[in-house]
Design a protein around this nucleic acid. Structure first.
Length: 426
DNA sequence: TCTGGGGTCCTAGGACCC
DNA sequence: TCTGGGGTCCTAGGACCC
């Protein structure tokens, strides 16, 4: 282990809610919540909304009264906007160090080892720059391991006196800090493990850190052991500055209303294949197989339930929407049962390879390779990038799309569509 | 009426081979 | 025909992350 390693975890504060505030000054001090796809449940809350006691994950239909009473601004999720603002934040962070791992849409690890001067002061400078350039406030946790940087970040968010930055490595009493963190808030310990640990009297991060290694290895496998060691300051999880190759690409949605007929299910599948294939081509990937799954609404007691999935191999690795859809529809025929009200369906593309080194068919390369199809996809992607998603699309996706998810309160695509640019009044 | 979506990793167990 | 050990590959299920 390198002596004196210093990692920073930069995490955007209430990211989706902050994104919604960037272009709407009147929301600055107002409670904002963002709903999941289909306007299902609460997935992000601004600080004001948290203070009102609006819980994470609560179904939206149970919150309407609360929203009305507190004049909460409610938004459908707008991933196009969040993705674009995320890219701006990451680009800003990359100016401070080349050793950066983009961990999720709203988090990045930075290696600040060897930075001259005061790392906490430098972190405050990073923080000020990000909010000034992007409008997104962030918190920064510092520590010798990723897990401790995560812990420090959590505490930095909790305590306003810290002004968004906490260095675990230089704090005088680390045990006291760890005791303030619930064990289920430790990175790598989820609900199930937290419940198990609680049965053994372990409720905070300090108690977990001091458990015997064998106990943790046996009950929480090797991942749990890594978490334990990282809390002790021993690095087990590396910084991944180069994103590892994707192994699968999935697209799935809940329906806005139940789907009963296979014709509608085929349309939905066509849309999901379209989305997944787009992402494959953007990453210069091809898939060897496709899994299709369908599911009824498990929340409705007393209604007949059915869920199934099946896999179909593609004749040759491809990212061509129509080639994948052909197989996906055959797979659907195998698992679709009449007489159910379907709530959800999805596709997953697997066996991914990079387009440049894909395995060609040994037997009939000439008939299976499809250069015309590749050119068609290129034109499709280019057109849609210029004129907007689905400007050009397959007829199989349908026209009415009655089953489409609900998104009644979506904000504009402020930064990615010429038609939806914010307007400044003087 | 209304309950998200997209991923990864680890382990156990079965099939199959020598 | 029976026996045992060791290895690999695949899948399903469970855990986690954001």
């Amino acid at each position: 282990m390198a002596a004196g390693r210093i990692l920073a975890l930069v995490d955007c504060n209430t990211f989706y809610a902050s994104c919604e505030k960037v272009f709407v000054p009147s929301l600055r001090n107002r409670a904002v919540v963002v709903l999941s796809n289909n306007d299902g449940c609460v997935i992000a809350r601004s600080a004001e909304a948290k203070a009102m006691g609006i819980p994470m994950g609560k179904p939206a239909f149970e919150c309407h009264e609360l929203f009305r009473r507190h004049d909460v601004a409610v938004f459908s999720s707008n991933y196009t906007l969040y993705g674009d603002l995320s890219a701006r934040v990451m680009k800003t962070l990359a100016r401070f160090t080349p050793n950066l791992e983009i961990y999720s849409i709203d988090e990045a690890f930075l290696d600040l080892t060897g930075m001259p001067g005061d790392v906490a002061g430098y972190s405050r400078h990073i923080r000020e720059t990000v909010v000034r350039w992007t409008g997104i406030p962030v918190s920064i946790g510092l520590g010798p391991t990723k897990t401790l940087a995560k812990v420090a970040n959590k505490l930095a968010k909790k305590d306003p006196a810290l002004e968004g930055v906490l260095d675990f490595g230089t704090c005088p009493d680390p045990d006291a800090l760890l005791e303030r963190v619930n064990v289920e808030d430790v990175w790598g310990i989820g609900r199930r493990y937290a419940a198990m640990l609680e049965r053994h009297g372990v409720t905070n991060a300090r108690q977990f850190r001091d458990l015997p290694r064998d106990f943790v290895r046996k009950r929480m496998t090797v991942g749990g052991l890594h978490t334990l060691l990282e809390l002790r300051g021993i690095p087990c999880i590396d910084l991944e500055t180069i994103a590892p190759a994707k192994k699968s690409v999935a697209a799935s949605r809940s329906f806005g209303k139940p789907v009963v007929h296979i014709e509608e299910m085929r349309e939905a599948l066509a849309v999901y294949v379209t989305r997944a294939a787009e992402r494959m081509r953007a990453g210069r990937l091809v898939a060897n197989g496709v899994t299709v799954w369908v599911q009824t609404n498990t929340f409705i007691a007393g209604e007949p339930q059915y869920a199934n999935s099946a896999f179909g191999a593609l004749p040759m690795a491809t990212a061509h929407t129509a080639e994948i859809l052909t197989v996906a529809l055959q797979v659907l025929d195998r698992i679709f049962r009449k007489g159910y009200r379907y709530k959800k369906a999805g596709v997953m593309l697997s066996g991914l390879e990079s387009f440049g080194c894909r395995q060609l068919s040994l037997l009939e390369p000439a008939t299976l390779a499809n250069p015309k199809g590749e050119r068609l996809m290129a034109v499709l992607d280019k057109t849609n990038a210029r004129w907007g998603r689905d400007t050009l699309r397959f007829a199989a996706c349908g026209i009415k799309q009655d089953w489409k998810m609900k998104q009644a309160m979506r904000s504009p695509h402020y930064t990615t569509s010429w038609l939806e640019l914010p307007v400044v009044k003087t």
